[in-house]
Write a protein that binds this DNA or RNA. Structure first.
Lengths: 187, 187
DNA sequence: GTCTATAAGAGGATAGAC
DNA sequence: GTCTATCCTCTTATAGAC
């Protein structure tokens, strides 16, 4: 397997367990089964490694969510797709999601250009704006609807990841809570 | 002023700007205007300082929220009080709130006993449970309602802190969004 | 591309005077 | 309680062979 990827994988595991700080590059290299110098061949600095990991995971998650959406669908079903796919990805990739959260709430987040940050929020945002303009969604600031939907998703994720559910149970919670949030934002 | 508090204040400022990692104890002492050794007199290790700061801020926020609640009130108004006070505190104490988020999403969070963590969630949780039992709130898992309300609050906070609002505007958003979430959870 | 060995320095923590 | 001075480890990053 690609050593670069091995390093990213090892970094993910260690960062989630010990944090950025308490994970020396030497341990990452060891965990990845590569030499210390090899890490710095691929990632000139530790910061570069952290950022690269973030971009990598963000891209993977974004790609997965985007894949699940078809242009043909009704707004409600598009949003349900977004919602369920995001939640499912987060549940199926808990370390990845934990890292993303850790990163987003750290000063590292400021080091990623804002433009780069909302590559993944923009599509959803314009979807919501269209919904508002077409009278399908409540006449509110699109940013507010976005924030509420994100917060809701976030909260439900916390609930689902805090207990152990069977697949079908989790799925049912997702559908029920989506109906709740849809009722909240739609006319 | 109390040197211990000066150190906590300085640590807050620096942690929020640079993160736990990129804030050496020497800088904290300098920023606080005390000697290096003084910091270690009050906080035996850097970790102790981080945790002490967390407890300090969590207590202050919790105290402020608890203060705003009167036993006499209707459930809806109690919850509105919780909601608005939390949001207002977070908006008025952005560095403090940022630090709390940073901490909650770091491996440090695991070092705080879980019991200690939900000192502040338990009252709200039992309030919700009562509401459910009395048929005022929807017949759902109290933990789920809690997660949804938290997520909603979190989302609205993100919205409010992301733009600049006049006091009255912010207040209006709080009231409107509370009505939305109340409608979502109540019968 | 990958490794080993090592330089260079930062930063947490202590000792001991006042 | 507070300060100064200092130790010493741990960690990032580089040099250079293969």
């Amino acid at each position: 397997m690609d050593k670069k990827q091995l390093i990213l994988d090892a970094a993910l595991r260690l960062f989630v367990e010990f944090g950025f700080h308490d994970t020396p590059t030497s341990k990452i290299a060891k965990e990845a089964g590569v030499a210390n110098g090899t890490l710095f061949y691929f990632f000139p600095t530790k910061d570069d490694l952290v950022k690269a990991l973030y971009i990598d995971l963000k891209t993977k998650m974004g790609g997965c969510v985007a894949e699940s959406i078809s242009e043909e669908m009704e707004l409600k079903e598009i949003l349900r797709g977004f919602y369920k796919t995001s939640l499912t990805w987060a549940l199926d990739h808990q370390p990845e999601f934990t890292f993303l959260e850790q990163f987003n709430n750290s000063p590292y987040a400021r080091s990623i250009a804002k433009v780069e940050m909302d590559i993944y929020t923009r599509p959803l945002l314009s979807l919501l704006q269209n919904g508002i303009d077409e009278g399908k969604l409540k006449h509110m600031d699109a940013d507010l609807i976005y924030a509420i939907v994100s917060g809701h998703t976030f909260g439900v994720h916390k609930y689902l990841s805090g207990k152990t559910f069977l697949r079908e149970e989790a799925e049912q919670v997702m559908d029920e809570t989506f109906d709740l949030i849809w009722k909240l934002i739609s006319f």
